[in-house]
């Protein structure tokens, strides 16, 4: 429980590609700060947002920080419900193999490593939105 009161369900929706605009990066900063508040957090990547998780980005040439390396640390912040719109991936010619492999360690199962990423379709996304108390859009 946070100091502020009861736990709420927070969903961060990422629908924009990285680097062309700052939204993806500054969204991640909100998620990291928000993790300290111990809310029930989920992330959803849809539309161009799925490009944020593409692995092995080389940003040296554009002179920007590769902020996406931080996604791998989300499991340590207990942010481990990461949903990806499978249709958005398919439309963009991507598969899970193109994305970072995000995991978390389950302390209730002797720190077993588990996948954070869950592929979801439109009905699951609609349900996911319905369940939330607060939705942040980036």
């Amino acid at each position: 429980m946070s100091e502020a009161g009861a736990t709420k369900k927070f969903l961060y929706i990422n629908r924009k590609a990285p680097y062309g605009t700052i939204y993806a990066w500054e969204s991640l900063e909100v998620v990291l700060i928000g993790a300290a508040f111990e809310q029930d957090v989920s992330l959803l990547f849809m539309d161009d947002g799925v490009y944020q998780l593409v692995k092995e980005m080389q940003t040296k040439g554009i002179g920007m920080k590769n902020f996406t390396a931080t996604y791998a640390a989300l499991g340590d912040y207990e942010v481990n419900k990461i949903y990806i719109d499978k249709d958005a991936l398919t439309e963009r010619g991507l598969t899970l193999d193109d994305l970072q492999h995000l995991v978390w360690e389950d302390e209730n199962e002797d720190w077993a490593e588990k996948d954070s990423i869950h592929l979801v379709g439109r009905d699951e996304i609609a349900d996911l939105l319905d369940e939330q108390d607060v939705i942040f859009n980036f």
């Binding site: 929706i13 629908r15 939105l129 319905d130 939330q132 108390d133 939705i135 859009n137 980036f138």
Partner: peptide
């Protein structure tokens, strides 16, 4: 409405 979602 119970929730608000802005499709930015």
């Amino acid at each position: 409405n119970d929730g608000v979602q802005s499709w930015l």
